[in-house]
Design a protein around this nucleic acid. Sequence first.
DNA 1: CTAAGTTGTTCTCAGATTGAGTTGTTCTCA
DNA 2: TGAGAACAACTCAATCTGAGAACAACTTAG
Lengths: 250, 250
Amino acid sequence: MNEQDFLAAYDPRDYPAVAVTVDVVALTIRDGALHLLLIRRAAPPFAGHWALPGGFVRPDEDLAAGARRELAEETGLGGERLRRVHLEQLATYGGPDRDPRMRVVSVAHLAFAPDLPDPVADTDADDATWLPVTALTSRQLAFDHGRIIDDGLERARSKLEYTPLATRFLEPEFTITELRAVYETVWGHPLHAGNFHRKVLSVPGFVESTGASTERGGARGGPRAKLYRAGDARLLHPALLRPAREETVR
Amino acid sequence: MNEQDFLAAYDPRDYPAVAVTVDVVALTIRDGALHLLLIRRAAPPFAGHWALPGGFVRPDEDLAAGARRELAEETGLGGERLRRVHLEQLATYGGPDRDPRMRVVSVAHLAFAPDLPDPVADTDADDATWLPVTALTSRQLAFDHGRIIDDGLERARSKLEYTPLATRFLEPEFTITELRAVYETVWGHPLHAGNFHRKVLSVPGFVESTGASTERGGARGGPRAKLYRAGDARLLHPALLRPAREETVR
DNA sequence: CTAAGTTGTTCTCAGATTGAGTTGTTCTCA
DNA sequence: TGAGAACAACTCAATCTGAGAACAACTTAG
């Protein structure tokens, strides 16, 4: 039987309930480290554990809209700054036993945000914070959120290779060094400054010059850096590949 | 309110019903052209239109298991040959008005299969066939399946760049020329035979030699080709990039 | 059986891209 | 004022890529 035949004869109330939620893996860079927005659960199951921000999709909203709403609620963000956050669908997690209470199919999303203020104290009991991704063990995480986060991090690392989305971690105007810092913290290892510079400027549409420079030199000296903004490319051609990790063959 | 609080106070029967289905974009190569498994709808809505194979997720099954089951039902495939089909999650489509009857959230999957027999006549009224992807206009497709197919094709094209999954379109033993033909039909343009050969053999873990050769030369002459099987790499390093299309910047 | 044409595989070579290091200059801090 | 930092540009060798040629092993047509 296929989907449509089934639906034709289907009374929703007769069927085992499935809940559809959206969850968000929201990443940002603070103090040179990759951080993740998490919520501390007050109630069981998994009381005291960390969980991804998320909730039910509302009847009138799109999945992406739901994810953006959840992000807005949890960060207190709105308007222009919310619109600048990159949001994409990550994957959907729907194993029968993800949640002990009922079947929950969760459409996970991935967000890249510039450094944001600490989440506002929400009306509900749970508290939200940005946590460094290195500070997490999967034991401290609710449900299968450890797995979702791992998938999100891997997706983020590979997205930086072939899209200009690294710019979404920064303010609209940035220096090449700031952009390199994004790559270094997401990929977790240092890059050659000169080669990175050359590459970024040579990929068409990655960045465009604003003509201006920073007001001051670097914190510990050095000349003022030129400022750039994101270009109009959606994809990087050629890509900016991360150096092969030792074990290319496994 | 977040997901977990909500669920704690939640009685499924009170909530607007959401149906969760899995759909499959199944691709194969027949006679040198990329084909897609489609089902002709008998009943409205979209009677007479083509639709992706799919159906409800069962209470006890995983999303991936549901997709594989749908694929098995529609192709009549089982056992070893079904296991060899590559299946991955594509994306989830859940706009409020996708289906005129009720809210349906559909988790689309993408499958790569070697050339398969024509689908068996199923018990239900609709008939299933492999159709060349070029023969489709979005008008002839039900729901938002045109969009899903487009996303699947683009994903397939890019997966060939950085994974060895092109081998999943072939039998377990294949020649380099057959592998090149997969790339050419999925990407839609010819590749340089010599360079392709060099590249495939130089990427660690892409293919390994069986030591054997084909029984006969090509249909119109030429030497026997060496046979290879898929190697153990999950990712191609370095990737096999498709030639940049003219408009890299848009 | 032979000739003509096709194809798998390996080379060659020029051009582009990459990795690594150097240089020069501008700036901050002590 | 001097020392150190860091932006930006450059150099050079190693590698990778695109394009084409060579050649032997095969096919079919005649």
